[in-house]
Amino acid sequence: MGLLSKKDAALIKDPLADNNPITIQVLGICSALAITAELEASIVMSISVLFVLGVGNVVISLMRNIIPSKIRIIVQLIVVATLVIIVDLVLKAFAYELSKTLSVFVGLIITNCIIMGRFEAFALGNGPWRSFLDGIGNALGYAVILIIVGFFRELLGSGTLLGIPVLGDPIEKTGLYAFGYENNGFMLLSPMALIVVGIIIWVQRTRNKALVED
């Protein structure tokens, strides 16, 4: 971390665990839950949010002195919408199947609360470089949760990771399936995403008592 001062490094490190956007700040839940049935979709969604939040934070931070505060929400929405259109078009061009899976949830990055939340809380009051780091940090914190949830849901739900079977073949009964193991199709249903996130919160708060709510 020779490049970054201690304060700057904290901007990236904090959101990964102790100030995680999903489990602590409760931002950006919608997309985190809806698209995590497959690991691949989770990773692509994370990269999209990383791009939008990193670039968006810099743009807003550069414009922070010329945006009238009354219309700042509309300005912010337009900036995000433009970036999201770029992401959407890139996805449609290079990963069409995946963009069908993500369907409207790419568009919903616009109203992903993480993005508006970071614009409001950080980019409007800080310089571009620090805003960039803050954006990257929060997007990574979001990505960590998405990837954990996606990992468990795909592994337990369909026995694959990134579409590659890792637990053996369920039809020919090889690997784990030879011992009577079965895929838990329930993990692929959307309510399980909520319960998996609930369990992540439980584990995190058991390890760090300071985060417990009354």
């Binding site: 249903l189 959307s190 309510p191 399980m192 996130v197 439980w202 417990v212």
Partner: peptide, 23 residues
């Protein structure tokens, strides 16, 4: 409720159970 689940954690799990009901 177990202390670590209070607030946010249990809300997530209840929502999950309600979602199963709504299915």
């Amino acid at each position: 409720v177990p202390p670590a689940l209070r607030g946010l954690g249990i809300t997530f799990i209840i929502t999950g159970l309600m979602a199963i009901g709504f299915m």
